[in-house]
């Protein structure tokens, strides 16, 4: 940004080269109005884009893996992962899953958004898997984390057929 007043070289030049400093002063004076409008907006934008306190991403784009179902992983598949995985157990009870080789962290769902937890998920190099005995809870938490910009997160389920219709409907043709 060229309007940075705190720029050190500006003060240096004010001491050593009065001519150019005066020019710069004039420039700032001329564009005072512009600076007064643009600078606060720029600062607000910077504050907003740096914070973790709100969602910034396109909802549809970051929900895409859930539509393609590429974000689901079964315990079996997880056992054969090559990269070091991080499993997050969202339940209050501690679970032990034998097949898992990587790190397992117990983070109850209500504290998953704590700063240190989010940064742990964001920094982890490799798949992060969410586990809960209720796959619906994993799904909800997955959506929040994904919308916050976490890539490489998966839902760990016991079986891959949660969304498969398991019954057969028998029409009652007599009632017509």
């Amino acid at each position: 940004m060229r309007f940075r007043i705190s720029d050190l070289s500006f003060f240096e030049s004010a001491i050593y080269n009065p001519q150019s400093a005066i020019k710069k002063m004039e420039f700032i004076k001329k564009y005072k109005l512009v600076i007064v409008v643009v600078l606060p907006i720029l600062i607000l934008v910077l504050i907003r884009s740096a914070g973790l306190n709100h969602f910034k991403n396109d909802a549809k784009k970051w929900a895409e893996p859930s539509i393609k179902q590429s974000n689901r992983i079964t315990i079996e598949q997880a056992g054969s992962l090559k990269k070091k995985s991080l499993t997050i157990n969202l339940d209050k009870d501690v679970v032990r899953i034998r097949e898992l080789t990587g790190d397992v962290q117990n983070i109850p769902a209500d504290s998953v958004l704590r700063k240190n937890h989010v940064s742990m998920i964001l920094k982890h190099d490799g798949p992060v898997m969410l586990f809960s005995s209720d796959p619906g809870l994993s799904a909800r938490i997955w959506m929040i984390l994904s919308q916050m910009g976490c890539r490489n997160i998966y839902i760990l389920t016991n079986s891959s057929d949660n969304e498969v219709f398991k019954y057969k409907f028998r029409p009652d043709t007599l009632s017509n």
Partner: peptide, 17 residues
């Protein structure tokens, strides 16, 4: 939905919006 996953995605999206 059939199970518990898609419906809960949808809920998180709808509530998020």
């Amino acid at each position: 939905s059939n199970g518990d996953i898609d419906s809960n995605y949808a809920l998180a999206i709808a509530r998020g919006l």
